[in-house]
Amino acid sequence: MSRFLAAIILLLSIALTILVTIACSVPIIIAGIIKLLLPIPVIWRYVSAFCNFMMYCWCEGLAVLMHLNPHLKWDVQGLEGLNKKNGYLLICNHHSWADIVVLCVLFRKHIPMNKYFLKQQLAWVPFIGLACWALDMPFMKRYSRSYLIRHPERRGEDVETTRRSCEKFRSHPTTIVNFVEGSRFTEEKQRQTRSPYKNLLPPKAAGIAMAVNVLGQKFDKLLNVTLCYPKNDSTPFYDMLSGRLTQIVVRINLVPVAEDLHGDYVNDKNFKRRFQLWLNAVWNDKDGQIDHIKAQYNNAGH
């Protein structure tokens, strides 16, 4: 693709993405204000259903926009057996802003609307922040280790936020999405966190442990999703917007929410250790899976 055509597609993609986002987020924000002003359970249920429908429309708009990538191919395994009437906890590696678009587009017709654990800073993004608030998405504050040493009273705030947010999802099937690394993968972050993984940052267990503990009976399965962009690994989001994204690889593994994944992560040290070991093993397998995908596509010359 020529640079001129890529630049045209980039501008078109940005403009259309903004228009689609505004068109879908404004009704969600208005509905959220109604929900805030009229705290009546029946009204809340109808408002929540409307907000989920508008988010589905947003996902459909993103799916249309992805057709601006003329050579894009999907390699997806594991969609079988998913159902919009079931509840899921979805964990995924986080490589790029493109990940959210991919998850929304891929799963929009297979599982309940995704609800993301979001960084607190996103609450201030025009339209998106208010819409995510109206959709009851939990906003998480991330503190550095040094900050927590100076302010120990801040410890556990994310866990409490998770608990309160999950309580809202008891009444209807929901897909809770957690990028358990807490941040997008970069080589710099990999060095800073001393990650033992080649393609991933160390996973943070507290959020999903609390979600399982609060909503364990509501989750039919845990969705372990692995994303990879073998031909656009450096700048997948930019390549997506400029029409240069050529390959999206997704591997989905349905994991039963076993009894030994239920427990008090905050107060039970033995359970906390077991849960961390389980999640680290999942992440080790994911790291190897990404290596395999990259080798497969590089060797095949795709």
Rank of each mutant, 00 (worst) to 15 (best):
Y238M: 12
L12C: 11
F169K: 05
W133F: 01
M113G: 07
F237R: 00
P236S: 11
Y147S: 04
K73Y: 08
R145Y: 12
S146N: 11
S165H: 11
L36Q: 11
A98W: 09
W278S: 10
V214N: 01
C51K: 12
L222M: 13
W133A: 09
V47Y: 04
S13R: 11
S234V: 13
M137Y: 10
F185Q: 02
G263N: 07
G32E: 01
M55A: 05
V105W: 11
N114M: 12
P152Q: 08
N52R: 15
R45M: 09
P27R: 12
L279I: 07
Q120H: 12
N253Q: 15
W278I: 14
C132E: 00
H292S: 14
H302V: 15
M113W: 05
F139K: 02
K115D: 09
I34R: 14
L245Q: 04
K231W: 06
L16K: 07
A206R: 13
C57Y: 12
P152A: 08
L261S: 10
A98Q: 10
G263L: 03
C228V: 01
L65Y: 06
H94A: 02
E187L: 14
A63Y: 02
R155A: 13
N52Y: 13
E167P: 05
L106Q: 08
A258N: 02
N83I: 04
N52W: 05
F117K: 04
Q77R: 15
W97R: 01
T17F: 15
E80T: 07
Y88Q: 03
M54L: 11
E187I: 12
D291R: 04
F4W: 11
I248H: 07
Q276E: 15
G263D: 10
G78H: 08
T226Y: 14
